[in-house]
């Protein structure tokens, strides 16, 4: 049991000495205020640690395992929540028409009203980022593609695709973008292992803690 992660992170990230070296905290008052704030947070987190062992209010009920399973549609990059099932490129190609994906996204994944699904025609590029903001090529993880189609497609009939259908459509879109071979079958084991071209090719959001400036030294 622990309270919050800044109880662990603050000492390493926010030593008073390193804070004093940052331009924004050179002014005496701000620096003192900040130290007091950090001390307060530390004490707060200690307090939370000591008391968060049992529920205080006793409100709410425990969900059943079935409820959690039915609601939990968030898929992590490691794919641990992916359901059983599988799908192929060929099945996905059929479903792309059958489920009317093409009406909004175009027969070739572009040229219609909804966001394009096929990488921009820029030839060979050094940086796969240059294929554009196109989910099945830009996304660092294939799980994001699976998750979004599963939760948000097709428009007006969201949540109606079976796991097999979602695996198939993801396979087709990844094949269209030259990420996987035509004979690949996707399932809960193979999908998270796909090496998307931008897998490490993006900037992480910054670690956040209370009272943090958005970017040190910006813009002057």
């Amino acid at each position: 049991m622990r309270s919050v992660s800044f109880s662990r992170k603050l000492p390493s990230r926010a030593q008073p000495n390193s804070l004093a070296a940052l331009p924004n905290f050179r002014r005496g008052e701000t620096c003192l205020a900040r130290k007091l704030k950090l001390l307060g947070l530390f004490l707060l987190s200690v307090g939370v640690c000591a008391q968060a062992q049992s529920p205080t209010y006793g409100l709410g009920r425990a969900p059943t395992a079935e409820e959690v399973a039915a609601w939990d549609i968030a898929i992590s990059p490691d794919g641990k929540e992916l359901p059983a099932g599988s799908g192929s490129v060929a099945e996905g190609e059929e479903l792309y028409v059958q489920k009317t994906c093409f009406v909004c996204h175009g027969l070739n994944g572009t040229g219609a009203t909804a966001p394009r699904l096929i990488k921009r025609d820029v030839g060979e590029v050094d940086d796969p980022w240059d294929y554009g903001r196109v989910l099945p090529i830009r996304s660092p993880y294939a799980t994001t593609v699976w998750d979004y189609i599963n939760r948000g497609m097709p428009l007006g009939l969201e949540g109606t695709l079976t796991p097999d259908e979602v695996y198939s459509i993801v396979a087709y879109l990844l094949f269209l973008n030259d990420v996987i071979e035509e004979d690949m079958v996707l399932d809960q084991d193979s999908l998270p292992k796909i090496e998307m071209p931008n897998r490490t090719n993006f900037a992480r959001v910054p670690d956040w803690f209370p009272g943090q400036p958005r970017l040190e030294g910006y813009p002057y």
Partner: peptide, 18 residues
């Protein structure tokens, strides 16, 4: 988790991300 909303904010530059 890199949800679709998170994906929509992706950038290659750490300063822009911040």
């Amino acid at each position: 988790y890199m949800t679709y909303n998170d994906y929509g904010h992706l950038t290659q530059d750490p300063a822009t991300a911040a």
